Amino acid sequence: MKGLIQRVKYASVMVDGETIGAIGSGILLLLGVEKGDDPAVADKLLDKVLKYRIFSDEQGKMNLGLKEVGGGLLIVSQFTLVADTRKGLRPSFSSGASPEQGEQLYNHFVERANTLHHNVATGRFGADMEVSLLNDGPVTFLLEF
């Protein structure tokens, strides 16, 4: 499972011209599910996302996690994140989970996030989405399990 996190001042996701998820300051998470991933892996990644210290403390050092600052979490499924791009000029998606497994783990991740954090918004699994954001920093990290 891969999660690309970006510290944002705001982020939103639209489907068919309608905003379906939006946050203010917080984390935009692009979530990719791979073959072999399971709920335990999803739970570990979520714990890391919520606690990863990418927000500034009083001294201006990245020393605070999302839960500590009370920021928003926008979760967007993105199967292209798990593509193998090492060879050739066309990505391979052979390591990606099936759509059914991907949706199941995405939904699990979202349900757990809503249980553990108060400010969660989402995209729509499998939809053609338009994601808008204002990077804060920019600060971007790839988390993998």
Rank of each mutant, 00 (worst) to 15 (best):
G32L: 06
E34V: 13
E34D: 10
K35C: 11
G36V: 11
D38Q: 08
D43C: 12
D43I: 02
L46W: 04
D47M: 08
D47A: 15
K51W: 00
R53S: 05
R53Q: 13
F55Y: 14
S56I: 02
S56E: 15
E58P: 01
Q59V: 01
G60P: 05
K61A: 07
M62N: 05
M62W: 07
L64Q: 12
L64N: 03
L66G: 06
K67G: 06
V69Y: 05
L73K: 00
L73F: 03
F79A: 05
A83K: 08
T85S: 08
R86G: 02
K87L: 08
G88Y: 01
R90D: 13
P91Y: 12
S92A: 05
F93D: 03
S94Y: 06
G96N: 09
S98G: 13
E100D: 09
E100Y: 10
Q101N: 06
L105M: 10
V110Y: 08
E111L: 02
R112Y: 05
R112S: 03
N114W: 01
H117K: 05
V120T: 09
A121P: 04
A121E: 04
R124K: 15
F125L: 07
A127P: 15
A127M: 08
D128A: 15
D128N: 14
M129H: 03
M129I: 01
V131P: 00
